[in-house]
Each structure stands twice: as structure tokens, then as C-alpha cells.
């Protein structure tokens, strides 16, 4: 006869989620560094190195997510909590994935980013990175102080709206410029792909909110 003590599984899952967040942090940090360096210098070896670092962190996060999923499938938690965490992980995992989308465009297409748009793009990346940072805090809050989760999710929503507004301004400026249409379309793709990061953050925030509300009776 064997008995699973409830706290054992929780500790395992929690520490692995924290480890996952560390890798995701690293992935986003390297993405931001790579993008800023690209804004400064355009395509170069250092940008590729940072892209590789970001990709490695994203892969490591992916491996950890699979480990956590396996732990959860081994019935460590109540089915309800298990389902909630699995959805949360799936949603979280799209955030580092979105950064890889941006870096792939830079690496594969070498787009020429116009000078007049660089401050906008830099700010857009900053807003999206901040949105992810709040997601990180909200996930930790869910595991430590759930009363804070809602407030943090509201902040994520605000950042996503700011990101949307920035994207619109940047795209309007882009299309008002004299660049050729192919270039405009390529840069618009970069802008949209950066914005996808905060879209993913907002989706995760919605889930976090639901998970927290479900535990209020």
C-alpha cells in the first residue's frame, strides 16, 4: 500500500514551475537584448549569439514544461488543479514562443528597420517585456499570495492595451513614410509579432484570473 502525501507533489510542481519561469525570464531577457542590439547595429554575430541564447532558454523551458506536465499526469494534484495548471502552462509557453517568432524574422529576413521607427520599436519591446514580467509575478502570486493575482492581471491588461496603441501608431507612421510596400509589409510583420507577446500575456492573465476566482467560494 502506498500513500501520496499532498505536500510532496505540490513542492515538486511549484519548484519546477519556478524553474520554468527562470528559463522563460532568460529567454525574454536575451530576446530584448538581441532586438536592441539589432536596432543599434543591424544583423551581426552578437545578435545571432543572443538569439541562440534565447532559443536555448526557450528549449530548456519547453523541457521543463513537459516534465511538469508529466508530474501532473502522475496525479500529484486534484484533477481540477491539474487541469488548471496544464492550461496555464500551455498558455505560458506561448510567450517565449512568440519571442522566437520575432528573432526568426530578424535572423532569416534581415529586415532594414527605418531610423524614424526605432524609438517606437524599442518602446514596444519594453512594454511587451514588462507585460511578461507582470505575468511572472502573477504566476508566483497564484502560488504564494493569490489575493494579488487579480490586481496583477489588471496590470497585464493595461500593458496589452498600451502595446496595441503603440503598434497602431508605429504602423500608421510606417505607412505614412516613403518606404516601398514590400519593406512596409515586412516591418509591419515585425511590429505585429512583437505585439503578439503581450497578446499571449493577456491570454495567460485571463486564465490566471479564472484560476484565482475559481478558488474564491
Amino acid at each position: 500500500m502506498s500513500f501520496t502525501f499532498p505536500w510532496r507533489g505540490s513542492t515538486n510542481v511549484k519548484s519546477r514551475i519556478l524553474a520554468y519561469l527562470e528559463q522563460a525570464d532568460l529567454c525574454l531577457d536575451r530576446f530584448a537584448a538581441a532586438f536592441r542590439l539589432y536596432l543599434e547595429r543591424g544583423p551581426c554575430e552578437e545578435v545571432d549569439d543572443l538569439r541562440n541564447d534565447s532559443h536555448r532558454a526557450e528549449s530548456a523551458a519547453d523541457d521543463l514544461r513537459r516534465e511538469i506536465e508529466q508530474t501532473l499526469y502522475e496525479h500529484e494534484l486534484l484533477p481540477e488543479s491539474r487541469g488548471d495548471l496544464l492550461s496555464l502552462l500551455e498558455s505560458l509557453d506561448h510567450i517565449p514562443g512568440a519571442t522566437q517568432g520575432v528573432l526568426n524574422i530578424l535572423f532569416l529576413e534581415h529586415p532594414v528597420l527605418p531610423e524614424f521607427l526605432k524609438p517606437q520599436l524599442d518602446q514596444l519591446v519594453a512594454i511587451n517585456i514588462e507585460a511578461y514580467g507582470v505575468v511572472h509575478s502573477a504566476v508566483v502570486a497564484l502560488m504564494e499570495d493569490p489575493a494579488r493575482t487579480r490586481e496583477l492581471c489588471t496590470r497585464i491588461d493595461e500593458l496589452e492595451s498600451r502595446s496595441d496603441r503603440h503598434q497602431q501608431v508605429a504602423i500608421r507612421e510606417l505607412y505614412a513614410s516613403g518606404l516601398e510596400l514590400a519593406g512596409k509589409l515586412q516591418i509591419k510583420d515585425v511590429i505585429r509579432t512583437i505585439g503578439a507577446i503581450s497578446d499571449r500575456c493577456e491570454h495567460t492573465a485571463d486564465l490566471l484570473n479564472i484560476i484565482a476566482i475559481k478558488r474564491r467560494i
Binding site: W7, S81, A147, R215
Partner: peptide
């Protein structure tokens, strides 16, 4: 104000 894991453990 139990966190997700404590809430889970309390229910179990």
C-alpha cells in the same frame, strides 16, 4: 487566502 497548492492540499 490559500495559494493554489495549499488550497489543493487542504481539499485533499
Amino acid at each position: 487566502n490559500l495559494n493554489l497548492f495549499r488550497y489543493d492540499a487542504a481539499l485533499r
